[in-house]
Each structure stands twice: as C-alpha cells, then as structure tokens.
Design a protein around this nucleic acid. Sequence first.
DNA 1: TTCGTTGTTTAATATGTTTTAAACTATGTT
DNA 2: AACATAGTTTAAAACATATTAAACAACGAA
Lengths: 155, 155
Amino acid sequence: MNEIRDRLIEAAVNLGESLGLNRTVCQIYAFLYLSDQPLSPTEIGKTLGMSKGNVSINLRILEQWNAVRKVWKKGYTRPLYVANEDIEEIVMSKLKSGLEKRLNYVKPLMNEIKKSRAGFVEKKFFDEKLEKIEKLISKIEFLLNNIETVKLLTK
Amino acid sequence: MNEIRDRLIEAAVNLGESLGLNRTVCQIYAFLYLSDQPLSPTEIGKTLGMSKGNVSINLRILEQWNAVRKVWKKGYTRPLYVANEDIEEIVMSKLKSGLEKRLNYVKPLMNEIKKSRAGFVEKKFFDEKLEKIEKLISKIEFLLNNIETVKLLTK
DNA sequence: TTCGTTGTTTAATATGTTTTAAACTATGTT
DNA sequence: AACATAGTTTAAAACATATTAAACAACGAA
C-alpha cells in the first residue's frame, strides 16, 4: 500500500522537475494530496525521511503558492496541513505570474528601443527583428490572457 | 547600438530562465538571432565574453534542439552558425517532448495501481484521488495534442 | 611539412541550490 | 516553574550545474 503511495510521490517529483520545482516541495505536496487527513510537519518529516528544517522551509513555500493550507484541530494551537486540490489552478497561476514578470521587463525595453532608433542606419534589418519579437510577445500575452479559456475547453 | 543589443540579449536570458535554460545558451541564441550574418564560434565567444569551450558545448546543445544550424561559406570547411528563427516551434517542441517523457512514466504506473487495487479496503478515498489524477493527466495530454491548434488561434 | 589558428573534449574550478544540523523560540505537560 | 516536545531560523555541508583552463585534434597558410 505504502509502496504505491511512494511511487506516486516519485512520479510527482518527476513531473515537478519539469516545472523547475525542487524534490522536497513535490514530495510534501504529493504526500499531503494523497493523505485522507491533515498532517503535522513532524509526521511529514518522519514519513518522507527529511529534516524538520527542510519540512518547515518547504511548507512555507507551498503556503505562499496557495498549494497547501493550515487547518486547526479544535483545542490545539499548532496547525496541521492539507493540500489544496486544484493543482491546475496552482500550476497555471504560477506559470502566469512568472511569465508576466519577465514580459514586464521586456516590454518597456522594446518601447525604448523603438523610440531611440527612429531614423537610423541598418534600420531595415533591425526593425524586422524587433517586429518579430513584438509579435512573439503579443502571442505569449494572448495565451496568458486566454489560459482561463483553454482551461474551460479542456474541462 | 551594441548596448541595445546587449539589453535585448539580457532580456532573452531573463525569459529563458523561466524555461530552465542556462545563461550561455540564451545569450548565444539571442546573439545569433540578432545578427544579420552567420557567425563563427570565435566571434561569439569574443563578443559575449565567454570561453571557447563554453561556446562549443552550448552551440552543440542549441543544434540538438534545432535552434541553430551550421552554414558553410564556400571555400571554407569550418561552419558558421545562424539562428533558426521560429522560436515558438523550438520552445513548443521542447515543452512537448519534456512533458511527454514524464507522462509516459506516470501512465503505466496508474494502470498498474488500478489493477493491483481491484477490491481493497480504503478503496473509496484512494480511488477518488486516482480518478482526479487521471483527469489531470488527460487534460495535460489534451493540451499537448492541441498545441498546434492553440498556435493557429494565436497567429 | 611546419606552424599558427580554430574547434572539441576533459578535468578542475567556480557558482548556485538544496538539505541538514544545531541553536533558538514557542507551545504543552507535569 | 521546569522539563519535554514541536517548529523556525540560519550557518554550514552536501550536491548539482555551469564555466573555464588546458590538453588535444583538425584545419589553413606559409
């Protein structure tokens, strides 16, 4: 039984890597996702064989992503943790905010370049490239703005 | 003039990072992309201030991705390099093959689990989870198979 | 053929990231 | 209050990746 769980967790780690996530974060999320009850950091650390410091750090990260949340068992002051189950939502919003940050870096640069280059030698070649880049940027933006739509399509 | 080029290259590095690419690979690709003529490894290394070994290694990687290609100036035996301009194609196909690899790891595992768990205690809870995971997998697959479509939509 | 130049490969170095150990803080129990 | 248990923080160790330097191979010119 636990072997199955462990292999599923490993698969999650595997998938997470393709998004640039670290091992621990994936393990913890998958473990919580596959658990039928809220768990304490201590239990998580013990089962997954990692230090409590590591659990603490990466639970924090998962919380910031809204991928896990605290629940309070009444009478106790220390929180337990559960996975938020809408993985898609989590992945998509991370993807979106990441790309947006980068685009907000490129876009003003493009404008600046266009101004500073009004009437210049070599203009033709360079302008062609710039135009191509701008097209690509707007395609990415279009995709970002339509992620909701795509999600609907695939539901 | 070159300052602009350098800032564009920096922006490319920035964007590339969000896909998990290393600095050098992005710099080289962007430099070639913004050049109006084929370039030699030596020129690339000199301009970007990196060792020739580094250029060599990362040109190889870019070639494997089909992101750059060799061109031969007649009379010369040593190739020069140019960027393939369809960045979208390159990014998409990398994304696709990466995800496919991971999915091909999870899918057989899911089947195995389903078989081995036919009639079991705790079944209800676990089966719900498994079903959710399967749905997610097929959504990702749907997206992968429709990337072409999405691209058409955004053209 | 010989020598200088260019490109490749590799071992080592440098850099960056993840994980832990241990000191510290907060909570719970007697 | 005193002691035990749980969680956080941070400095150091372990690990992974990227980059270089230097030995080597291929080519081009004299």
